[in-house]
């Protein structure tokens, strides 16, 4: 079953456009949603949550159309955002008591468990929590109301490596039984190298690739060659940079020809993002 199925979403803003955004997330997996700031990650997420009106397109969550079953489906969606705070002066206890009223399947036992596991003190105010603790609190809330799809918008931004790793381990634990699926937007790609099963890559409002992580990386090659070799391949490169040794450039693996005799290696997610960003710059 698909936890999330986005088909041909279009949305035009005065100075930005989502064009035919489509991707699918299989139930029980983690999908990393990557792209530069302003590429359309947050707009896409807002479309999923029905917070912006799409010009066209369809979004299905857990097999049902979001436009038709928004309220039922929101019962099953958990949302956490790094860096944006709600009602920071309230105590966790107060906030939880308000939130739980909205969810039919609220499970107090689960909530208590996660408070203990995440070492969250109910009597603290939101403002007193660290960034990582806030994300954990959001996750505790989401899991206690029985969320099956977690949408995490930049949950690791502003976290130190230890807190980040801890969160990533938590995410992996969540999908371990195959019931919960996670869509995880970030621009910190190293987070995803470890835990993501799928990658969706958005550039300037368009999905460049959505699929399994290793396949995604292997669909590109990072070339290292001499300045003389550059002319031979220049047109096929997504972008490149020169240095005193020659050039380094990114190329779709399908365009690579072994007979060129150029050193090629599988790039990291970060390298793919960087070279795409460089391409964008050239056209601006």
């Amino acid at each position: 079953m698909l936890a999330l199925d986005i088909r041909n979403v279009n949305k035009t803003y005065p100075n930005f456009q989502l064009r035919n955004v489509s991707f699918q997330l299989e139930k029980g997996y983690i999908m990393g949603f990557i792209g530069a700031n302003g590429a359309g990650k947050t707009t896409t997420i807002k479309s999923i949550l029905n917070m912006t009106r799409m010009d066209s397109g369809e979004i299905h969550v857990l097999g049902r159309n979001m436009a038709e079953y928004e309220l039922e489906l929101k019962q099953e969606i958990g949302y956490a955002m790094g860096g944006v705070d709600f009602y920071t002066r309230s105590k966790l206890k107060t906030l939880t008591n308000v939130i739980k009223k909205f969810y039919a399947k609220w499970d107090e036992g689960t909530y208590r468990n996660y408070l203990r596991r995440f070492k969250l003190d109910e009597n603290k105010r939101i403002a007193e929590l660290s960034t990582g603790m806030k994300v954990k609190y959001s996750i505790a809330i989401a899991l206690s109301h029985g969320a099956k799809l977690l949408i995490l918008d930049e949950p690791t931004s502003g976290l130190d490596p230890v807190a980040r790793n801890e969160l990533l381990d938590i995410f992996q634990g969540l999908v371990a039984d195959g019931e919960i699926s996670i869509l995880f937007s970030t621009h910190i790609t190293s987070d995803l190298e470890k835990c993501a099963d799928y990658i969706t890559f958005i550039v300037d409002g368009q999905i460049v690739h959505s699929g399994e992580k290793e396949e995604f990386k292997e669909s590109y090659l990072l070339l290292n060659g001499s300045a003389a070799q550059l002319n031979q391949v220049k047109d096929r490169l997504i972008s490149y940079r020169m240095n005193s040794f020659g050039f380094t450039g990114l190329i779709p693996a399908s365009d690579f020809d072994n007979s060129w005799n150029i050193k090629a290696a599988t790039p990291s997610l970060e390298e793919i993002m960087v070279y795409y960003a460089k391409k964008e710059d050239e056209y601006v």
Binding site: G28, Y29, I30, L168, Q172, A176, G178, C195, E212
Partner: peptide, 17 residues
């Protein structure tokens, strides 16, 4: 698969592959 992924802190698909 899923248990191995969690214990090794790698993605499910990786273990599957």
């Amino acid at each position: 698969i899923r248990q191995a992924a969690q214990e090794l802190s790698i993605s499910v698909i990786t273990v599957k592959k």
